[in-house]
Nucleic acid binder design. Structure first.
Lengths: 347, 347
DNA sequence: ATGAAAGCGCTAACAC
DNA sequence: GTGTTAGCGCTTTCAT
């Protein structure tokens, strides 16, 4: 049994290698590798001996060597895209939750998660494949960072990629079931007896998620025989402020709505603030439903009723788009109405 | 120039290697390595030639090989510890913020972040060093997960470790400046004219952070000539519910306090709810200060005044404990009073 | 079912 | 300042 790694009889090897385990277990080094990798062609008895020896010596497979040799990394790269010019880690609670779920989903598949927060040109980097750092890439973040999404599209890393939040449809996206969410939200408002239901959020091609929610809002209202209203624009980076301002414009109308479906929870939270300030009683005189299931909504006044995507499923959908590209992976993540308190009881 | 990696003249190499770049640039492979690694012993002219060739061929250093050879990984492992029995990714916004800041701090030092969420025995794993997966380990999370912290202590991974949230003092901790935070909070309440100021939070050896905050609370009150009160216990996994219940007990007292410093924002948020429900007007008749700077506090009713640690510094402190163990790294992260609205103006 | 041998692509020690 | 050489520790053929 040759041991190319070191001369026999040295005082102390710095690291326990598979050769040490092989020697201790009385097998060859390749048997150690196979036994520990769970190869079916190894006797239970041999495997037990190898495992015992490994445990005794405190041996652990060196991931660096395993990766170099096998070409795989067992790692999923996750990039969280923030708003240009802002601290890249100050992303919304929604993206943190989605990040967590994606890490968990990766772990379920035996993958580790390499996480990076990026918001500015110059710090963009999707090059995980060429550098042998990951076997897959998930990019999630705000659609408003045009530069980041454009850069991703341009770079087009050659490896499996899944995306949440991109303003473009390049076939790698996973999204909430926005149509269904809008339907749940609007039906709930209708059933509560609100009669003029508005939509808070910018609707254009750069906000496909919002556009889908608006579309669902329109269709559901039509089915209910109620009028859909032109969306109240919420532009600007600060969604909360945007929600506030939208409500101010809305209340100044001759015939203001008596409820809104907000394109997301940040907008809804701003709306709640402005309504409170204007003395409008929520939910009695005005209903609000958000979208995202933000934790902050729990402590709002009143607590925000919202549409929450199934985060665990969202993580799994992103991961499965990458590691089971054959299977028909979910692109639409199921959503749920979370009753909290910004909509009065159904009639 | 030998190319052990492949016979010359093969049809197509699957991967561009440093040998290809060397050939294209007319230098040796090791010069390519040095040039791209930024070695100072390479001429600007040579480096330029190498970089041009690398760019032309689309070459990128293979991290797997570089790591195997150098023994380093350029990676920081970050473990987020959640509550036993709960979804490991449903951790508080505080820990998500700290996670983000730590990733950012690691990136500042040129390190990548390998993130993992762990909450249950059986899924614990701190073994990043033996497996050659990371050069450092940051563990952060809730002190209530006894099993996790005990397991970390027992396993004692042999490599640089830094910790936030552990109930034990093993010399690797980084924490908020809890004493200073408590002082800022209590002084603010005193200046607003509240006269019976309570503390919401369990104070025992398993909650060193809370104990430090209580200690700071006591000392500041003494300096102000006001009475300190025995802490209102907040046990149970759900801090928000705990805060609610603590307020109920507090209000039932013959001489209830007229303000509280809550050991953290979750407790404070629960307190705010219970006060609202009881018809106590905050901040006019009752002051509340929290701790953590939770985003949810912004939308509470009223918005929660709180003590916020400098997250960016917290991340840097954790990372520097690992990568500059020589320098005297910050163990106490500075805090700041964030005025929001749950304390009335100072007199 | 196991062993022998061949590298994965790079960094670093050593020469010059 | 650059070239030569020797592995890092493993997985994976290919034999047997």
């Amino acid at each position: 049994m040759k041991r190319p790694n070191s001369a026999e009889g040295r005082v102390r090897r710095s690291r326990v290698t598979s050769f040490d385990v092989a020697e201790a277990a009385g097998v060859s080094q390749s048997t150690v590798s196979r036994a520990l990798a769970g190869s079916p062609s190894i006797t239970d008895e041999t495997r037990a001996r190898v495992e015992a020896a490994a445990a005794r010596l405190g041996y652990h497979v060196d991931a660096r060597a395993a990766r170099l040799r096998s070409g795989r990394t067992g790692t999923l790269a996750i990039v969280v895209v923030g708003r240009t010019g802002f601290d890249p880690t100050r992303v919304s609670g929604f993206h943190y939750a989605l990040l967590g779920s994606t890490c968990a989903a990766a772990a379920e598949c035996g993958y580790q998660s390499l996480v990076s927060f990026q918001s500015d040109p110059g710090e963009f980097g999707w090059n995980y494949f060429a550098q042998g750092q990951a076997d897959g890439l998930v990019v999630m973040g705000t659609s408003v960072n045009r530069a980041a999404w454009a850069d991703l599209l341009k770079t087009d890393p050659e490896g499996p990629v899944a995306v949440w939040g991109a303003p473009h449809d390049d076939g790698r996206w996973v999204r909430a079931d926005n149509a269904r969410g809008a339907q749940l939200a609007v039906e709930r408002l209708v059933n509560a007896g609100y009669r003029r239901i508005g939509f808070l959020g910018t609707v254009d091609s750069e906000h496909p998620q919002f556009a889908e929610r608006y579309q669902g809002y329109r269709e559901t209202l039509m089915h209910s025989g109620l009028p859909a209203i032109e969306p109240f624009d919420v532009s600007g980076a600060d969604r909360v402020a945007g929600g506030r301002e939208a409500i101010e414009r809305l209340l100044a109308l001759p015939e203001p709505p008596d409820a809104v479906f907000a394109a997301n929870d940040a907008i809804a939270l701003g709306a709640l603030e402005a309504l409170d300030r204007a003395g409008v009683r929520v939910p009695n005189d005005f209903g609000v439903v958000g979208f995202d299931g933000l934790a902050a909504g729990v402590h709002a006044h009143p607590p925000l009723t919202t549409i929450e995507p199934d985060f665990a499923e969202a993580g799994r959908a992103l991961v499965s788009r990458i590691f089971d590209p054959e299977g028909e992976p979910t692109r639409r993540v199921p959503v749920q109405l979370i009753e909290r308190g910004s909509v009065r009881p159904a009639r």
